[in-house]
């Protein structure tokens, strides 16, 4: 097996890229995608450690995270569609009213 440190490096790299995407992009859809990247980084860590200690429980948590990602994507994309219908934009900094 590749040393566990490399998996952590990969995971941190994906996490950092995801954070950059979430903080800097204006497009809400790409922000959501960056969140998926972050969740994915977590999954890599969980599965790598599950392999290291020889227990599948880490994979169980990864499955829960994927479930969570599905729920988050469904609600997030629903919000985006609703917002786009009302404001004709998907840019995060133009979502500046609390009610319409």
């Amino acid at each position: 097996m590749v040393p566990i440190g490399h998996y952590i490096f990969l995971s941190v790299a994906l996490l950092a890229i995801g954070i950059v995407g979430v903080v800097t992009r204006r497009n809400v859809i790409i922000i959501l995608m960056s969140i998926e990247l972050i969740l994915n980084a977590v999954n890599i860590n969980l599965v790598a450690f599950s392999r290291l200690v020889g227990s599948v429980e880490g994979q169980i948590f990864a499955i829960f995270i994927i479930t969570d990602a599905a729920a988050e994507a469904a609600v997030g994309l629903g919000i985006i569609i609703a917002f786009f219908r009302n404001r004709e934009t998907v840019l995060a900094d133009e979502m500046d009213i609390l009610k319409w």
């Binding site: 941190v12 996490l15 954070i19 950059v20 903080v23 204006r26």
Partner: peptide, 27 residues
């Protein structure tokens, strides 16, 4: 959601420098 308009707008907000620093520190 038709993105043709959004395609020609600025894609990054003004926080990109902060974000880079934060993620670099994290890494």
């Amino acid at each position: 959601v038709n993105l043709d308009v959004a395609l020609h707008q600025v894609q990054f907000n003004r926080q990109w420098f902060v974000a880079l620093i934060i993620s670099a520190v994290l890494a």
